[in-house]
Simulated scan of single mutants.
Amino acid sequence: MFTTHIETDEIISVAEFRARVLAKVTPGKAETLVNVARDIVALANNPDLIATRFTRELAQWEQGGFSLYSPQSCVLDSFEPFVVRLNFWPLLPSDPRRRNILARVLSYDDWHDHNFSFLTTNYFGAGYETEIFEYDVASVDGLVGEVVDLAHKGRHQLSRGKVMLFRSGKEIHTQIPPTEVSASINLLMTETGSALQDQYYFDRDARAISGYVESVSSKRNSLFAFAHHLGDEETDGLLQSIAREFPSARTRACAYEALFRRDASFVERIGEHVAADPAPIVRGVLAEAR
């Protein structure tokens, strides 16, 4: 992993930051994001980012032009394959129910990885703390309960001038709530096949996968549950194609599972294809169906 601390008085605009990213960062190569470490700090030195963005958003109220990514973040700029995002890190409320909901939304104390790479720095406030482990997503099958080889990389605070790189499928971390309201700036880079890659939750103590982060992949797989109830013969054909050809093993497994639920005869009709799949998570669907 990469962390550094940078001090600079330079202040740049979002437009200038875009120009520097395009000149210095190679799409698809996460390690080149560090080439703009000083530049992202210079962007974070710009005190007008939030006011400028919110003013522009409010000016579009008649067109419904609000483009907050979520209540926690907003997009400052987007230029394929990059997104510049401002994230807010509030204090947790005292009410236990609201506290638990907000903590989940903000990934406070949730161990997770990412299926995209990003460079981040502090914008204001004390900044959240994060504890980081390193692993290799290519070495796992993606089964809930699967033990994962983790290497501890320490605990870090995203304080003023701190820059950290999180690589797709490499770093596992959790955010620890800040001591005061804070914000960070992220430069995200999507990579080829990132939408096909699952994101995982982890049990740190057990050093194992504990679940799946809600993502494009999760939403796609959730659609198969409806196929069980609402599909037809054309659905069956599409599910078979997905199950045999889709790059994501978890998606293939979900497609086979939907087929078996729709018609139990598929277990024998296509069982040999499932048994030949290289992924244990897929072959496990057949074992459960039998």
Rank of each mutant, 00 (worst) to 15 (best):
D205H: 14
F224A: 13
I209W: 00
F246C: 05
R204A: 12
T235S: 14
H229W: 15
S194Y: 12
Q197Y: 03
E214G: 07
R207N: 05
I270N: 01
F266E: 00
A258V: 10
A258F: 13
Q199M: 09
Y200D: 00
R250G: 13
E233G: 06
E245L: 07
F224E: 04
R261Q: 12
E234F: 03
T235K: 11
I270G: 02
T235F: 11
Y201C: 08
F246M: 06
R250F: 10
R262Q: 11
R204V: 13
D236K: 09
S194R: 10
R204W: 05
S248P: 05
D205I: 13
A264C: 05
L196I: 02
F226D: 04
R261L: 14
I242D: 01
R204K: 14
E268W: 02
A253P: 00
A249Q: 01
A206D: 08
Y200P: 02
H228T: 15
R204L: 13
F260D: 04
T251Q: 12
R269T: 14
S194H: 15
S194L: 07
A195P: 05
G211A: 06
Q197M: 14
E257A: 14
E268C: 01
L196G: 08
E272V: 08
R252H: 09
F226N: 12
V213F: 02
G193V: 07
D198W: 04
R269G: 03
L196C: 09
Y200R: 00
D205K: 12
V274D: 01
G237D: 01
G231Q: 09
A264N: 15
S215T: 12
Q240H: 08
A253S: 08
F266N: 02
Y212F: 15
G237Y: 02
D203M: 02
A227S: 10
A208I: 00
L259M: 15
I209K: 01
C254Q: 06
T235C: 10
S217D: 08
